[in-house]
């Protein structure tokens, strides 16, 4: 057993373990922390596969942005988790059923997958030698040539989602006080301060 195998079992055990903790932790903040641990270990698995670009992207996008938002929401919302857990047993049989169906399908699929030893799946695009071409460049070369339309379509879908979220949450309220920065910057002493001579014992 080489060193890579040791790390594979370490990372995958930690991923599965923290995945279980995500759904079983009592405190929602702890659950998000375990989710982050799962993401980081999954990034470790990507590095073992030689996909360092994907590993870094996983950390940047999921740990650096998505999980921060999760944490934000979980910390801000005052959710009564005892109440949420009250319905746990009611939904458990349905959840377990769906879980078993998915598990059964996966077992059927991978059990029947007969791969000849030493044979590899045929990729749609030839995989370049990682020693010659860093995988950032390799991904860039296919993403911006063969798959450029899909890539742009994804961009447009994300933009639509972003605009949709802004439109749904935007409401103009008259009571809200807003800063007009241009007005503030343009303010001069002559517009805002008046110097008066005040005689002793008299007001203005």
């Amino acid at each position: 057993m080489g060193l890579a195998d040791v790390f594979f079992y370490l990372f995958s055990a930690l991923t599965v373990g923290s995945g279980l903790m995500v759904i079983s932790a009592r405190n929602p903040v702890h659950a998000v922390m375990f989710l982050i641990l799962a993401f980081i270990n999954a990034a470790g698995l990507f590095i073992l596969l030689g996909a360092e670009f994907l590993a870094m992207l996983l950390v940047i996008v999921y740990v650096g942005a998505v999980a921060v938002l999760f944490l934000f929401v979980v910390m801000m919302l005052d959710i009564d988790f005892a109440e949420l857990r009250a319905g746990y047993m009611k939904y458990f049989p349905l959840g377990a059923l769906i879980g078993f169906v998915v598990l059964g399908e996966l077992v059927a699929l991978f059990g029947a997958w007969n791969v000849e030893k030493g044979h590899r799946a045929i990729p749609a695009v030839p995989i370049p030698d990682p020693a010659k071409l860093p995988n950032t460049e390799a991904i860039g070369r296919v993403l911006y040539t063969d798959y450029v339309f899909y890539f742009e379509a994804v961009g447009i879908i994300l933009l639509t989602a972003m605009i949709g979220a802004i439109v749904l949450t935007w409401r103009q309220r008259d009571v809200a006080k807003r800063q007009n920065v241009a007005e503030q910057v343009a303010r001069t002493p002559a517009m805002s301060v008046e110097v008066r001579k005040v005689e002793t014992g008299k007001g203005i």
Partner: peptide
């Protein structure tokens, strides 16, 4: 000497915010 040095920097420094959020909470 990583090939993805800059991405490593961005990935690790995006974790810095956790120290502050968790400490505050």
């Amino acid at each position: 000497n990583l090939n993805v040095g800059i991405l490593y920097v961005l990935a690790i420094s995006s974790l810095e915010v956790y120290g502050i959020i968790i400490g505050g909470w």
